[in-house]
Design a protein around this nucleic acid. Sequence first.
RNA 1: GGGGGUGUAGCUCAGUUUGGUUAGAGCGCCGGCCUGUCACGCCGGAGGUCGCGAGUUCGAGUCUCGUCACUCCCGCCA
Length: 611
Amino acid sequence: MWPCAFRAAFARPEHQRNSGFPMHRYRTHTCAQLRPDEVGNTVRISGWVHRIRDHGGVLFFDIRDHYGLTQCVIDPDSSAFGLAETIRAEWVVRIDGTLKARSADTVNADLPTGQVEIFIEEIEVLGAAGDLPMPVFGEQEYPEETRLKYRFLDLRRERLHNNIVTRSKIVAYLRARMAERGFSEFTTPVLTASSPEGARDFLVPSRIHAGRFYALPQAPQMFKQMLMVAGFDRYFQIAPCFRDEDPRHDRAGEFYQLDVEMSFVEQDEIFETFEPVIRGVFEEFGGNKRVTPKLERIPFATAIKKYGTDKPDLRNPIVMENVTSHFAGSGFGVFANQIAADDKVEVWAIPAPGGGSRAFCDRMNKWAQSEGQPGLGYIFYREGEGAGPIAKNIGTERTEALQTQLGLNVGDAVFFVCGLPGKFSPFAGSARTRVGTELKLIDTDRFALCWIVDFPMYEHNEEENRVEFSHNPFSMPQGGIKALEEKNPLEINAYQYDLVCNGYELASGAIRNHSVEIMRKAFDIAGYGPEVLEAEFGGMLRALDFGAPPHGGLAAGVERIVMLICGEHNLREVTAFPMNQQGEDLLLGAPGKATATQLRELHLKLNLPKA
RNA sequence: GGGGGUGUAGCUCAGUUUGGUUAGAGCGCCGGCCUGUCACGCCGGAGGUCGCGAGUUCGAGUCUCGUCACUCCCGCCA
């Protein structure tokens, strides 16, 4: 409820105390300040009418501001009683009155100001309010459309209000920690050049240059590298980033990153520098949830094998294992035949501790089918035997061997996926998550952080049958030029890493490629000739050609950090003015139409799709 | 672009499976009562094109088709 959260968030801000000063136009105290030590004083507060309780002869108003709540009382003896009876919820009022102690039986222990109340002598209406499309009081859920259209009301509500305050504090904390470590904050252009790799750009037409466009930055990647080339050594920025892709619960077209770059460093030093910042923010703001004390570094390939994803939720104790040998040549033809036909085929096991019932296994199988899979094979172990169709087919010996390898007990189950690991690993990963969630194996009382390292430099694009960059093309390949010249591109790793928390990618970064020679070779392998490289990344190449220091960094998603800390599951719950899922701002009506004059000035003609 | 879900009072929802008299509840709003509440309480009232359109039927909130909106997921995206 309101009072408790406000007690934690805004306990009596000292700079706001006005006692002893001449009467201020609007307030002598905020709505969180008054205590028994001021009983008898004439006080003035301003705020919103949070809740009214009308007892006929006596009226109670809870007055709310950013800092808290104060109960005000009025009875017919007061000259303001007539006006008081007309006041409604969410009006903004100024109240003058005498502070009184509440009697022992009327103290409200849940309210920081609950030992006192103001006896109203005068009321001034500062801002009346019409009928509300959505009440501020209470915890009722409302349609997102309504919430976004009346965001100013939604933002008054306790939970969202607190989230936004927490976000502000987190950003201030991040800035302070970065500054302490010798980083300087720079701003970089928002109107910039389109980048050929990555997501779709938002474009802004140029009035001065007919037919040319600025792009909004997907990230200040080039600029921060330029700053390193310029010798600034340690850069950071709470950087606005823009990507014109469909929004999701954990990503928006417009978002902020804590963007970081350092010169003369190797991967380890970046980790050592940034780890205390990210761990610190969770320790500082994460309530009593435990935070991983030392971040494990998991190679990309290992993460895929054990968790089926490069952003594993380590709160989930399930670790997958390769169990191909138990099925090769077994009586379970569905798997055995695939294994015999292709030596790249593997069978992975997803242990399900405590999931050893036919009902649960069938439920998982149904779920797999709803995900477009043929099904999800399983064995469940009950007293004296492994049960289920697979157990029957592969026989007692193999069933027991599986049990031994996976350390399963009576009452446990295990699920199997079979095929080419590159194809099924995402599904295996979501099955692991599903099992962990359904069986309540996930410890929600912690932030489980880790680094994922050694991302592959390249991957094979099957549709176009070519090699392409799997991540950032500016990452330094491990082994440098030698690796590029001698190794199979698909086996080269990059100094590329992610920071993961509870299944979310919180940050991504790399040691950059600061050598023109290696850059040329790296792009050559991905099918970009020198001319293309020059045309698309000429500025970057020139910079590297004039004395570039070795450098690297990362960028952390601010909203995702805040979201995890606030216990929310949607970025829009930690963003003051978010767009809806169609990329519209329902409050101010963006995107809007351009006038004919605006279009003419921009040298644009609309070519709208036929209705 | 594809798939799922939802659409009934200002808001949250029930009613739809099995078509049948006047479509209900809580919150909010309006009126009345109430001097100690803090989710105040009690009495009364207003408020509905059941998203929209067509169809089936003696009869549609309920069944069918279409359509729109919202929402979640996939595609896309680090």
